[in-house]
Design a protein around this nucleic acid. Structure first.
Length: 478
RNA sequence: GCUCCCUUCGUCUAAUGGUUAGGACGUCAGGUUUUCAACCUGAAAACAGGGGUUCAAUUCCCCUAGGGGGUACCA
């Protein structure tokens, strides 16, 4: 009997959706899709001190941007606290848990002592067998899980393989705080069980939790889900890619001009592989994805490769769609407001017309937009250093000589323009580059741009000639 | 400290008990070209170290080193 696969992505809303979380979500999504199952979303907001509404929104937004959809409504863990509490009480009634009256000070002292003795700094089980009558008056106890002390707990992990933890190394964890709120390890078990989760795919920072959780499953008489602990993603320097060490939320990648398709492709190859395949559609990946092809070692995040992939996807995206992406991106840019004002409807149309030449030359949407700056520039153009160097007296002379021919070009099409410029170069014994580069500098203010005949075409006759005159004329006045 | 996991070119990775250890990104050198990209060709570049097991280990086992995770009344 084959059971429907149900995975879940369970972020805690204490920050944005970071890149590791995004990959975890992607893997869960892929596995569910690959097996014809479902992926559920659970917001683990039980840490009320750190969870924020804004973070929840940022995470949902990040998932939507990555086009990772989930099935059904998100489950909010906090809303299920009553159920978690009931399970804790059940564990207590069954004798699988006990009340612990130790104060925070006592616990701290206990940890310190254990450390000094070279032992694992876990709870020592003081209240495991003490009578309730010993309880100090007026204190609210926490409830601790009575973890087995003998033997070992085995996790048959789909990625990590067989992981064995000695039970003596697992202490009695608190499942219900003294204020009556459930803790993570209890909530996860109850929720995963109640939601019918069949496969838990998450970062391997949860690997040791899995052993604790397995013990709780057992005490409750529930089947454990299948675990798959995916290695973490490290920064370019090999250090942990944590929120504190410059890890970025997916919205930062969006703002840097990356395409969701490129990020997904990059992320899926971080830890998972299918032979020598690098560029894969999500349809391909869904067809091929499985847990056994996930590697066991951590990967470093490499922007260079992401950029390369992004360039690939950029080139493969339709012009009109790129314009829409750009329109959505502009407000998120640092100078977005100013830029948004400068580009009018006509500007967007021009941008789309210039897109074939632009998308060939950019690795990100941000770079693309920067390369398109000449479209929105106002005369007289500001020349960058190299363009200024290019427009030496000889070049300005060339432009002056070229001008009459260009003025007569009819129609103003790339083909006709190219014929005109080539004829001019040939007739005057110049190499094409000697004409094209000054033109480029005059028209775009830079030394690099899309094909120069396309630039002339997109800019139009009037604006092109005016920009050329701006530069050619200066020699006559000089 | 205790405990768990990991280790193939700079990076992401493939493969195999016997291979010239493959691909991709990046780098370098050419080609193409109106610039820059793209594209094409080529090059340099890896089995962490030490022990075993075996006719034979990059591959299996052990140790060491290095890296990472966990070690909360956080998730």
């Amino acid at each position: 009997m084959s059971e429907t696969v149900i995975t879940r992505f369970a972020p805690s809303p204490t920050g944005y959706l970071h890149i590791g979380g995004a990959r975890t979500a992607l893997f869960n999504w892929l596995y569910a899709r690959a097996k014809g199952g479902r992926m559920l979303l659970r917001i683990e907001d039980t840490d009320q001190a750190r969870s924020t509404e804004g973070a929840i929104l940022a995470i949902l937004d990040g998932l939507r941007w990555l086009e990772l959809d989930w099935d059904g409504e998100p489950v909010y863990q906090l809303a299920r606290a009553e159920r978690h509490r009931a399970v804790a009480e059940q564990l207590l009634a069954q004798g699988n848990a006990y009340r612990c009256y130790a104060s925070p000070e006592e616990l701290a002292a206990m940890r310190e002592q254990a450390r000094a003795d070279g032992r694992a700094p876990g709870y020592d089980g003081t209240w495991r067998d003490r009578e309730a009558s010993d309880a100090p008056a007026g204190t609210h106890p926490a409830i601790r899980f009575k973890a087995p002390r003998e033997g070992e707990t085995v996790i048959e992990d789909q990625v990590q393989g067989r992981v064995v933890v000695a039970n003596k190394d697992i202490d009695d964890l608190v499942i219900l705080r003294s204020d009556g709120s459930p803790t993570y390890n209890l909530s996860v078990v109850v929720d995963d069980h109640d939601m019918g989760i069949t496969h838990v795919i998450r970062g391997d920072d949860h690997l040791t939790n899995a052993a604790r959780q397995a013990q709780i499953y057992r005490a409750l008489g529930w089947d454990t889900p299948i675990f798959a602990h995916v290695p973490l993603i490290h920064g370019p320097d090999g250090a942990k890619l944590s929120k504190r060490h410059g890890a970025l939320g997916v919205e930062a990648y969006r703002a840097m001009g990356y395409l969701p398709a490129a990020l997904r492709n990059y992320l899926v190859r971080l830890g998972w592989s299918h032979g020598d395949d690098e560029i894969m559609s999500m349809d391909d990946v869904v067809r091929w994805f499985d847990l056994d092809a996930i590697g066991r070692s951590a990967a470093r995040f490499d922007f260079a490769k992401l950029e390369n992939l992004n360039g690939h996807y950029l080139r493969g995206t339709a012009d009109a769609e790129l314009v829409r992406s750009l329109q959505a991106l502009v407000p998120e840019l640092p100078d977005g407001a100013e830029l948004g004002r400068r580009i009018d409807a006509e500007g967007w149309r021009q941008l789309e017309r210039a897109m074939p030449g632009l998308k060939e030359r950019a690795k990100t949407l941000v770079e693309l937009l920067d390369n398109a700056a000449f479209l929105f520039a106002k005369r007289p153009l500001e020349l960058d250093e190299q363009a200024a160097k290019l427009l030496d007296p000889a070049a300005r002379q060339t432009l002056a000589e070229l001008l009459p021919g260009l003025e007569a070009v009819e129609p103003w099409s790339p083909e006709a323009l190219e014929a005109c410029v080539r004829d001019f170069a040939e007739a005057t014994g110049r190499k094409l580059g000697k004409v094209a580069q000054p033109l480029r500098a005059a028209l775009t203010g830079r030394s690099a741009s899309p094909g120069i005949f396309d630039v002339l075409d997109v800019l139009g006759r009037e604006e092109s000639l005016a920009r050329i005159r701006d530069q050619a004329l200066s020699i006559e006045s000089a």
